[in-house]
Design a protein around this nucleic acid. Structure first.
Lengths: 334, 334
DNA sequence: TTACGATATGCAAACGTTTGCATATATCTC
DNA sequence: GAGATATATGCAAACGTTTGCATATCGTAA
């Protein structure tokens, strides 16, 4: 297909040489160009629709102006919001983004990282899978700039990491429920194998009253599984007064159980969740929740990566962001 | 930063030349390589962590294995679902995606297209802004493979277009409301300047009873504006029995008006919308709506683009997909 | 023994840029 | 008017691949 116009084409049309055209188009200082020639080149370039080939110039050591982002779920707004915020920062600096969905599958993650490297991106932002530490090794070996967001690289030290205070999310939620008088609480969580994520449950337990009972159920990282575990939990513990969801992707399915059973949220049953997906506060829904301010996460990660790219490298940095309690009407005071 | 390993490095380590290494690594047929040498090369490459530079090989006419996608709103699930489905198709064929958000700003769209071209992507999928016809001209001029999704390139013919039956969406919604006995209907729409999109309203009007009244209000393409126009409409027409949202991004804000006013959806007021964002069927929400099957849209667009890339070009193709009525509990029979 | 196909490898030219070096006038300065 | 700047441009070598062409060593059929 498409025969792209090259510097040579422009040079011929303008009656000069490729070198000169390159100087003009990049308007480098430190090189004299007569106004007359400059105009001729500019005109020729625009008439021919010249578009520089980024691949070729990157061969000469120039930035590719490309960033790779890996997220585990495209349908999860938590992650798309991170991308959204990151993109805003990057485009302002002239970078394009390659956004990839690992579907939380380690092999796919590995393949994607390899392809990003072969695209010679300038940097990578990643929310890793369980095997992230191993899968990112090639990237770290070649010295690729990388910022990890949200989940950690299990078992690794000394990388750049922007994350939420996961323990704090659980703790704040627990404190709130305790303040509202709840003592029998169902926790729906995810056995991710990532300690930091699982500390959400620890936080919840630590903050709860000494006489409180926490009934934990573990679902897969999907709405359907969240639905199923919620059903099971409600069946097992009809006396529970509150349900706390550690992961909003599970909550998304789980909260449909209440409608199905005719339970009025905030009256018959109290519900709270970690994360702020739009469904949680739209229409008739008004859930109490712990907002993780994903946009801010994304911005921080992007800025950090830009710094790395500019400076070459830096001290391993760890940014931990606290969550924000948002009080809706889904938790009843008892 | 990163010094990437080159073919030359591998060749030296394996005691051979770049050419041979290239043959081995791409395992081209029609070239004899002794098993002994092949193993030596493979070993060297893996020990050195060799990663081919896609930019360099694309200089020699190879595919970049890169696709660009432009969508107008990253926060709008309608579009992220298209991307999600498209990505699945593309990764299966070894392509990476550059997903970009135009924020519905024509200048940004233009800039992004230019950058994608300079990345020498193999193809582009785009949901254009109002100025899409003009902004995509460079791409069309250089013969870039392109598939348009959802919105058209206003005033242009002969391009590849995968879209929804927008008129049909309005019509089906109108017919359903009519069947439920509604005669005074508020329509919240978007004056996009794109005729095809605005035909949703025409469809609604055409399907409504002859004695029906449609009160049209036009909001910006945002939740906030949807909220404001809904307020205004309800104030102006307290006798309206139903609200029909032509665009779910406006509905997202609009439906919060009912909660604010204590109106029970499906009882005090009937609500219907075009599109199937997850908030519409999560938790206490259960909206009747016209599903546009975005995943299918995305898949179709991706397959079409792959065909174009493979075959070089093809007859301009126009795929129109019908919407599917999903009956929730938000519309009351009167 | 010659010659020829099969096997196995090296060489170097391209691809589209960027940039240091060389060249060639024109303009000063003393 | 000689040397030194300043101004203006061309040339060619890289960057990391791919690939057609050349070369070299076999075995083997005539």
């Amino acid at each position: 297909m498409s025969r792209f116009v090259t510097l040579k084409d422009v040079a011929e049309k303008a009656g000069t040489t490729v070198g000169t055209v390159s100087y003009v188009l990049n308007n480098k200082k430190g090189r004299y160009i007569s106004d007359e020639l400059r105009q001729r080149v500019l005109l020729a370039a625009s008439e021919l629709n010249y578009i520089k080939c980024n691949g070729a110039s990157s061969l000469k050591g120039m930035d590719r102006k490309l960033i790779g982002i890996l997220i585990p779920q495209f349908e999860n707004q938590f992650f798309t919001r991170i991308c959204l915020a990151a993109e805003e920062v990057f485009v302002q600096h002239g970078y394009d983004l390659i956004i990839c969905d690992t579907f939380d599958e380690p092999e796919r993650e590995k393949a994607i990282i390899h392809r990003l490297l072969s695209q010679r991106v300038d940097g990578i932002i990643i929310t890793p899978t369980v095997d992230g530490a191993e899968n990112t090794r090639i990237a770290r070996d070649v010295g690729m700039n990388m910022v990890v967001v949200d989940r950690p690289l299990e078992g690794l030290e000394g990388y750049h990491w922007v994350t939420t205070n996961n323990y704090g999310c659980g703790f704040e939620g627990g404190r709130y429920l305790r303040g509202c008088g709840h003592r029998k609480i169902i926790y729906i969580g995810w056995k991710s194998g990532i300690a930091d994520l699982e500390s959400r449950e620890t936080g919840l337990r630590d903050a709860s009253a000494p006489d409180a009972e926490i009934y934990s159920y573990y679902a897969e990282f999907s709405p359907e599984s969240g639905f199923a575990e919620t059903e099971k939990a409600l069946d097992d513990h009809p006396d529970a007064t509150a349900v706390f969801y550690g992961f909003n992707i599970q909550a998304k399915g789980g909260v449909n159980v209440f409608r199905k059973r005719g339970l009025r949220i905030g009256e018959d049953i109290s519900v709270m969740l970690i994360g702020s997906p739009e469904w949680a506060y739209t229409g008739s829904n008004d859930f109490s929740r712990l907002d993780m301010e994903e946009l801010e996460l994304g911005r921080k990660a992007a800025s950090l990566l830009l710094d790395l790219i500019k400076k070459g490298s830096a001290e391993p940095n760890r940014v931990i962001q606290d969550c924000v309690l948002i009080e809706g009407s889904s938790v009843r005071k008892i």
